[in-house]
């Protein structure tokens, strides 16, 4: 008695990791940072995340249909949601709803699907979306909030929704009464007008080592980043290179002139450096492949960000830095191929 079997290629092992699981781990890792963000800056943060998620899924599904691709498993691979969350974390919590819509249009439709879909995008989709709205709608992109502890008017969920969807300011005094510049904004404008750091830092907007509230958001993202490192979803090269290059470059500037330069610590914990180091610059699709390549990529992101912060026209420059390095990634890859066994 003999028996027949079907055949298929080795290896024969179960279960295998999945793209969905990788993306899910990234989303999970973002939770502590998101919670801290919402804790300090109100429910607008969560609303923006959900809004971007909805638009991302709509565009993802639409593009899959137009490209003749199956909806499953692509819609459920969660990659569009990661893009959406990363984008939503970059914009002001009170930004109008159509900001998300336009940004996701560019992120999902243009940067992702027009380049060939998952795994094919040359540029980081979330950063493409962010830069498009940052450049096109600078006014809407400045609706930042002060930490709840400092705001005179606490906005409830209803107020937040009214502002985001209706553009209605429920409080007397309009926009100026509720929005506030970010620490890096303040720094940029006041430094230009000749103030010194110690003076600026007396503003209640600054915390112990970063912006008030912002430093805890950064801590939350760092915690999530460590989780990703532990789970080996990301390697240590990019986070180390980003933060390391920011520290190494800002240190001599600060030592030479502490009056007009932030300390390395303040640089790292203000703005989006930590988020970028662990979650944005680590995007494998648009980043570098080899470990030396990742180090160069991360260092480039850190250096360009700092240059934009210090000498550029924008208070923060992560998005531009990431996109510029995305362009350089294929070239970096070409020159950083690891030595093959026996070579």
């Amino acid at each position: 008695m003999t028996r027949s079997f079907t055949t298929s290629g080795a290896p024969f092992f179960a279960p295998k990791p999945t793209v969905t699981k990788v993306m899910l781990q990234v989303l999970l890792a973002l939770v502590p940072g998101i919670l801290a963000y919402a804790w300090f800056f109100g429910p607008g943060v969560i609303v923006q995340i959900l809004l971007a998620m909805v638009f991302a899924l709509i565009f993802e599904s639409l593009m899959l249909r137009l490209r003749g691709q199956p909806q499953l498993p692509y819609v459920t691979d969660l990659s569009a949601l990661v893009t959406a969350v990363l984008f939503a974390l970059c914009i002001p919590p009170l930004a109008p709803w159509w900001i998300s819509c336009i940004a996701m249009l560019f992120a999902i439709v243009v940067a992702k699907h027009l380049y060939g879909g998952l795994g094919q995008n040359l540029f980081n989709p979330a950063m493409v979306g962010y830069v498009v709205v940052l450049i096109s709608f600078p006014q809407a992109m400045t609706a930042w909030l002060p930490p709840l502890a400092l705001s005179q008017h606490s906005l409830g969920l209803a107020d937040t929704l009214a502002i985001i969807f209706g553009g209605q300011i429920p409080i007397q005094g309009g926009w100026d009464a509720i929005t506030h510049a970010t620490p890096l904004d303040i720094l940029k404008t006041t430094l230009d007008s000749g103030a010194v750091i110690t003076e600026i830092r007396r503003s209640p907007l600054f915390g112990d080592y970063g912006g008030l509230g912002w430093e805890w958001v950064a801590n939350g993202f760092a915690l999530g980043g460590l989780f990703l490192l532990y789970k080996r979803v990301i390697s240590w090269h990019v986070p180390l290179a980003v933060t390391g290059s920011v520290i190494l470059l800002s240190l001599p500037l600060w030592l030479a002139n502490p009056d007009s330069n932030l300390s390395p610590m303040q640089h790292v914990f203000s703005g989006a450096i930590v988020l970028a180091a662990f979650f944005i610059a680590t995007d494998p699709v648009s980043g570098c492949v080899s470990n030396p390549g990742k180090l160069i990529f991360g260092a480039g992101v850190g250096i360009i960000t700092l240059v934009i912060r210090r000498w550029g026209g924008y208070p923060d420059g992560i998005a531009f830095a990431v996109l510029l390095m995305n362009m350089a990634a294929p070239l970096i890859d070409r020159y950083t191929r690891p030595r093959i066994y026996g070579e």
Binding site: S8, K16, V19, G119
Partner: peptide, 15 residues
């Protein structure tokens, strides 16, 4: 023992 045939996805260059 054998991984059930799973749908092949595009490479995300996770490394």
């Amino acid at each position: 023992d054998v991984a059930t045939p799973q749908v092949e996805m595009p490479c995300i260059r996770c490394g």
